[in-house]
Design a protein around this nucleic acid. Sequence first.
DNA 1: TTGCATCCTGACCGTATGGTCAGCTTTCAG
DNA 2: CTGAAAGCTGACCATACGGTCAGGATGCAA
Lengths: 212, 212
Amino acid sequence: MTEPSRPMRRQDIRRENEKAILLAAEKVFAEAGFGGATMQLIADLAGLPKANLHYYFATKEELYRSVVQNIFEIWLQAANCFDAARGPVDGISAYIDAKMEISRRHPDGSKVWASEVMHGAPVLQDYMESTLREWTDGRVEIIRRWIEEGKMDPVDPRHLLYMLWATTQHYADFGHQIETLNGGKSLSDRQWREAKENIKRVILTGIGAQPA
Amino acid sequence: MTEPSRPMRRQDIRRENEKAILLAAEKVFAEAGFGGATMQLIADLAGLPKANLHYYFATKEELYRSVVQNIFEIWLQAANCFDAARGPVDGISAYIDAKMEISRRHPDGSKVWASEVMHGAPVLQDYMESTLREWTDGRVEIIRRWIEEGKMDPVDPRHLLYMLWATTQHYADFGHQIETLNGGKSLSDRQWREAKENIKRVILTGIGAQPA
DNA sequence: TTGCATCCTGACCGTATGGTCAGCTTTCAG
DNA sequence: CTGAAAGCTGACCATACGGTCAGGATGCAA
């Protein structure tokens, strides 16, 4: 527990409340979907009266948009791992690690993102057509170069990327299924490590890039 | 167009209406999620008055349950491909083909299924703990045997299964993203074929099973 | 201390939604 | 032909939800 709240500064109040609301919203949106989520539920989870939510976020749509943009930022950051790399082994390994870490640390955000895309990306369409497309095209180019340089087999770069996204994202979106099949327990540290190792090994071997 | 409906038999009426409702429901649930879907929307899409829906399905929950169970049946059928096979190349190839065909032919159902699991499988929990678990355990055993017989590398069977599920399911659940990155056009026959080939090749090579 | 901007909230409102029902039409067994 | 069962539906209801607002509390600059 923290100190019984010092008289807070205005700035802090705003920051903390927004944070609390966004965190609660992320969880509720993830669990119930946009349509199933209620401002009341989010308010309760954030420990604030409902009317206060509307003070910080005018509408449910606006709140949702903020949540989605937040997770998109995180997603983009992980994407950088790809660039620094000199070859497929480094690059793809790092990317898998990063995305698996997101699935583990931000399962709610990942679910919201998945839900958004599944429902036709009403909020993120613009980002997908600009930022995401550019990022993807860039990475496709990198992979193509790796292939030319003989560092990996000639695999279609796009389908390879989809495979990376799918496999890593799955551990967040279908986490409940995985838990159920794991005897109702969430994956242990060891199991997460094994998951990463397996994925990296199968994919790197699969594309003909020698794992270390 | 079919013949301007002959005076229908009772049985036929029931069957046709249920079918129309389930089809419409699948689409609406997929597009809007359970919470965002409305009986009115489903009714409109099915071309029936709303009250008629409640004549066939007492509640929204019951209708949803039917939709989810339907897709689970399809999912289980595809699962059979695994059994007939003599080795990983046959088995996994067939399974990937079957699951990709589901993603292509039943994208709405796939999305509903994904949504259901993402939200904690409120309806399917029982199935997951019984049918799905048994199927999975059986398949894990088969893969283990393949490994023992030297037909493939020692890969963790569970994580391999997750990878198969994730990769194939992705083409339905994230179809919108894929379309957007494909210039706004849905994948062509050729692209679907390439997708399948890439996935099969990477995974089969990745687990050390010789592709044909 | 004062005045003002920010922060907060209980009570309220219009609407949309899931669901009901009384009474109609259609089918079909006997 | 007849009557009962199945199929159908417009009108209605209670509730829950997103959103508003008037007015109170609080921090803070001057």
